[in-house]
């Protein structure tokens, strides 16, 4: 019983998160300007990180935790570099 409840609600959460990633990807593709694309990318990686957390709950191992942490940190560095690039046209001044 509890396995079924948890299993189906995790599936529901994964569907919702995939839709959210779709919205973010749509904003990334449509733009219209560079900053819109970057904010789409930023949301996209946060959603992907949450999707990994749900995968971790489903499998019952803490392995996915490390993957989620790495995605979170790399996504942050990537977005900061892109924002910096928008500001001046170069990443390192």
């Amino acid at each position: 019983m509890s396995v079924a409840i948890l299993g189906w609600s995790i599936t529901l959460a994964q569907v919702l998160l995939t839709l959210a990633m779709g919205c973010a990807a749509l904003r990334f593709i449509r733009g219209p300007r560079a900053q819109d694309r970057i904010i789409g990318l930023d949301t996209f990686y946060v959603n992907a990180m949450l999707l990994l957390v749900t995968l971790g709950i489903r499998s019952g191992t803490t392995l996915y935790f490390e993957a989620a942490l790495v995605i979170g940190l790399l996504g942050f560095v990537g977005t900061v570099a892109l924002a910096k690039f928008l500001m001046r046209g170069e990443v390192i001044e």
Binding site: L16, L17, A20, C23, A24, G40, T43, V46
Partner: peptide, 9 residues
């Protein structure tokens, strides 16, 4: 999260 991403759209 989905509501936030819909807002992006």
């Amino acid at each position: 999260t989905l509501i936030g991403s819909i807002g992006l759209w």
